[in-house]
């Protein structure tokens, strides 16, 4: 009985791995995030660092700004929005959390909701 279960599990695992390996050659089954490019040549940190740690930078910055009045630009959410918000055909800024826009593109893909924009402006300020 135990042996049978191990066999079945192995088979299932093999199938699963095969399925996972496939998309490397074929079209991905899910649409990948389409990341809107920011202004300038490079982000404030290397891309891989930003991908993993942007929330830590933002959280650290927010405490410094709110409690101590530290207003450096490098890790400020305002700075992110100024660089990454794009304009539509009419020349109006599109909110960064709108579908397909910079923030939403990855967060929608990863199904991680953001609370930032319940309070923060979604387009560059005046």
């Amino acid at each position: 009985m135990n042996h049978l279960r191990t066999c079945l599990l192995n088979a299932a695992l093999a199938l699963l791995l095969g399925a996972l390996a496939m998309p490397a050659v074929a079209e991905p089954r899910t649409p990948l995030p389409n990341i809107v490019k920011g202004k300038g040549d490079q982000c404030v940190e290397p891309t891989d660092v930003m991908r993993r740690d942007h929330m830590e930078f933002l959280k650290h910055q927010r405490d410094g700004t709110v409690h101590q009045g530290i207003r450096t630009k490098q890790h400020s959410l305002k700075g992110c929005i100024e660089c990454h918000a794009v304009k539509d055909d009419g020349g109006e800024y599109v909110p960064v959390n709108a579908p397909g826009q910079f923030c939403n593109s990855c967060h929608g893909y990863a199904a991680v909701s953001m609370d930032c924009f319940q309070c923060h402006a979604t387009t560059p300020g005046k």
Partner: peptide, 28 residues
């Protein structure tokens, strides 16, 4: 719920707020 915040003064539903002596100006 709000969607018309200004960039220098984030604010939203469910939080308390009051005069901040225009702290964004002061810090500049």
């Amino acid at each position: 719920a709000l969607d018309d915040q200004v960039a220098h003064n984030p604010r939203g539903k469910g939080c308390v707020e009051s005069c901040n002596f225009c702290v964004h100006r002061l810090d500049e």
